[in-house]
């Protein structure tokens, strides 16, 4: 985020804040969705996050990268909301018009769905670093900063997460095709 926009938001300029929202909300919503596994909870987390950003922007240190700060707030809000609400996954949360993809991608949609379900099946400790790395593209050092973890812990969780995903995908391939060697 540039310093001028930051200054404007610190001065409670609502238009500047909307610019910030438009710039960062898309990925924030995706990450919140992949972390909470519910559109309703993700919406709550994103709303709370941006409200906190608005009221706490004075605590953001100019010159530092904005996104790790934003995502630290977002992940904390996701965790807080997940802890406080019962885990209910609404099928409608993930209803996607499959025909949208039929023309643009040769890979069967089912494969993506399978992999996404496997990501959802990871526990929070493994899923959150995976989402931050592969969906948002954060570097390991940034993930360590966002989650207040040692970088080696992040590396280890990413490794374990990937291994579990590989196993899960190999397992479901084998289920569909018992002759499959399971190699992916």
């Amino acid at each position: 985020m540039d310093d001028i926009l930051l200054k404007r938001i610190q001065n409670k300029d609502k238009q500047a804040f909307e610019e910030l929202y438009q710039r960062y909300a898309g990925y924030a919503a995706r990450v919140a969705l992949a972390v909470t596994r519910s559109q309703a909870l993700a919406a709550d987390a994103v709303q709370e996050t941006f409200i906190r950003v608005y009221f706490n922007i004075g605590k953001f240190k100019p010159g530092y990268p904005f996104e790790p700060w934003l995502y630290r707030i977002l992940i904390n809000e996701c965790n807080r909301i997940m802890k406080r609400r019962s885990r209910v996954t609404y099928i409608s949360d993930y209803q996607i018009n499959q025909t949208d993809f039929a023309f643009e991608d040769h890979r069967p949609f089912e494969e993506y769905e399978e992999l996404y379900r496997a990501i959802e099946g990871l526990n929070d400790k493994l899923r959150i670093p995976i989402v931050l790395k592969y969906l948002k593209g954060f570097k390991e050092k940034e993930i360590a900063e966002i989650l207040s973890l040692n970088i080696n812990t992040v590396k280890s969780r990413l490794y374990k997460g990937r291994q579990k995903l590989k196993k899960a995908i190999a397992g479901s391939k084998k289920e569909r095709n018992p002759d499959d060697t399971g190699k992916i």
Partner: peptide
């Protein structure tokens, strides 16, 4: 493939 799955499965809801 992980990146693609995460993007495709969150596209519509995020929008």
């Amino acid at each position: 493939r992980i990146t693609e799955a995460l993007h495709k499965m969150t596209d519509r809801a995020a929008y």
